[in-house]
């Protein structure tokens, strides 16, 4: 009697046990899934954290290096800047050309910037030719855009050393200017951040190096001039500074992609724009 009645409860007991095992297994799976999901989220969060920490560290080191060069030097502008004598609010631009020339070409550039090198290769010779002929005067404003964005101090040290050349003379300045762009390192290589590298390069320009020049470069005499020029340009453009910026009598002449417009064509366009400006000024 008991045996027939006991068959049901025993069977349902097994079922209950199986059901409990299934529930236990399902709970285990959910727990494991949660742990796995948690690990994945933790790995992603950790990666982001590492990136942010690396950035924080790098930017602190960059700031230190940038502030070290020219530290303690008061604002000073190179010889003959326009508008003279230069001030922190308008530091002024280095002039190449004769003061009688009526057309003004402004070149805002960074000695570390690869597109500035490209612009120099397309327009540099023309600028010199027209300035030497007394048709235009070129105003060079040097900024430290790449340093600020990519770290390093090549824009600042390279640019300051170039600015020291303006104290020596226009011929020396423009020769050094050419040389700096011809030897420009890859954007990510900061070799212009070394004063020694810059002085060695300056040694290739006749009559440029002297005790005064070397002292000017080593002390970072014009570092503040460059930083202030960046601020000036930022204010003028409303925040987003890009180099190179070329203006012919205030009208922008944009550098174009050489794949779209060949360099020789851009040089021709540039000459035409200069000729038009010269004709306009009479």
């Amino acid at each position: 009697m008991t045996s027939t009645g006991g068959g049901g409860p025993r069977r349902s007991g097994r079922e209950r046990a199986a059901e409990a095992r299934r529930q236990q297994a399902a709970a285990d799976r959910r727990r494991k899934q949660l742990v796995i999901g948690g690990i994945a989220v933790a790995v992603i969060a950790l990666a982001a954290l590492i990136g942010v920490l690396v950035q924080h560290n790098t930017s602190n080191n960059n700031k230190k290096a940038r502030n070290a060069y020219g530290a303690g030097q008061p604002f000073a502008a190179p010889s003959g800047v326009v508008p003279g004598p230069g001030s922190p609010t308008d530091p002024g631009a280095i002039v190449y050309g004769k003061s009688a020339a009526k057309v003004t070409v402004e070149v805002d550039e960074d000695v570390r910037c690869p597109f500035c090198k490209e612009a120099e290769s397309f327009f540099g010779a023309t600028n010199k030719e027209y300035a030497d002929a007394g048709k235009i005067q070129v105003h060079y404003r040097l900024v430290d855009l790449i340093d600020r964005n990519s770290g390093g101090q090549g824009s600042l040290v390279g640019g300051s050393t170039l600015a020291c050349a303006a104290d020596v003379g226009q011929a020396e300045f423009i020769a050094f200017h050419d040389l700096i762009y011809k030897n420009q390192p890859d954007e990510t290589t900061d070799s212009y951040g070394s004063v020694d590298t810059m002085l060695n390069l300056a040694g290739q320009v006749p009559n440029l190096r002297s005790a005064t020049f070397d002292q000017c470069a080593r002390s970072g005499k014009y570092a503040q001039w460059i930083k202030d020029n960046y601020t000036w340009l930022g204010k003028k453009l409303g925040g987003s500074v890009g180099t190179p910026d070329i203006y012919i009598d205030g009208t922008s002449f944009p550098l174009q992609d050489p794949n779209a417009v060949p360099g020789t064509q851009q040089t021709a366009n540039y000459k035409a724009a200069l000729d038009a400006a010269v004709a306009k000024q009479g």
Binding site: V43, G51, V52
Partner: peptide, 20 residues
């Protein structure tokens, strides 16, 4: 800009491992 490549690397690693 700095976190982005690390983030992408982490996603790649998790995919290769087949985790989450």
């Amino acid at each position: 800009g700095y976190a982005q490549p690390y983030l992408e690397l982490a996603l790649g690693l998790l995919l290769i491992l087949g985790l989450g």
